[in-house]
Amino acid sequence: MNIVDRIWNSSLGKKYLMALTGGALFVFLIGHLVGNLQVFGPPELINGYAHFLKSKPLLLWGARLGLLACVALHIASAVTLAQLNAAARPQPYATPGAYGASKASQYMLPTGIVIASFIVYHLAHFTALLPGVNGVGDFSKLTTTLHGETVPDVYAMMVLGLQVKWVCAFYLVAQALLFMHLSHGLAAMFQSLGFRDHVWWPRIECFAKAASIALLIGYSIIPVAICLKLVGSDYVERKKYDLKAANPQPAPAFVAAQGKEAK
């Protein structure tokens, strides 16, 4: 058997795949968070960052395809392993089982499935910019000028997008379940790859908790701050007008409103 078959046809081989792809996705999550946290700076910061990414199509598409492959492999091994596991106990116990197992470790598949549906939504929301899913309008109309160039206004898109209460709520639910997934998964990853002994295991568990909490906080403060109108709400008032107009024009109403506030 060649190596691909050997890995795919073995329970442990699939565990290595889960762990490696999960680890790669975790590394991406860190980078993605650092990128997103720039929304707390001036609009030019994150818009410049987004423009920088878009200006490197090879890098961008390489990363996108790599991530997609990781997600696909992670899900494919998760689902096949879950089938294997279900088949291994055809008759359930009458008493609650899974003695001594944490809730997070028992619900890896359900939390994963919600995360997967979030990923689909998130891509439709902010990557494919499907107007139907965001509850606001056509985000592709949001543009701004950066160093004399017309670029997509990612800042306004994030603020407008996450000001919608149910969207914000879904983002937060997904983050909570991602936290659950990672609080167990990050530690399990080391075990699956064989990095564990009695000295390192407590440290690994500590790392898994700390990293998953850090990601939870980092990713949650963005929608929360935006939904509470702590970030960019003044900036997007004007953009709402742009969204409705066919050709974005400076909005007189916005200028008037600003004048009122200044009094």
């Binding site: 106990r89 197992a101 944490s102 399990a188 699956s192």
Partner: peptide, 13 residues
């Protein structure tokens, strides 16, 4: 036909 490990720790417990 045994299942795979999800590192729940029930076995050790």
């Amino acid at each position: 036909g045994f299942g795979a490990c999800t590192v729940t720790g029930s076995c050790e417990a």
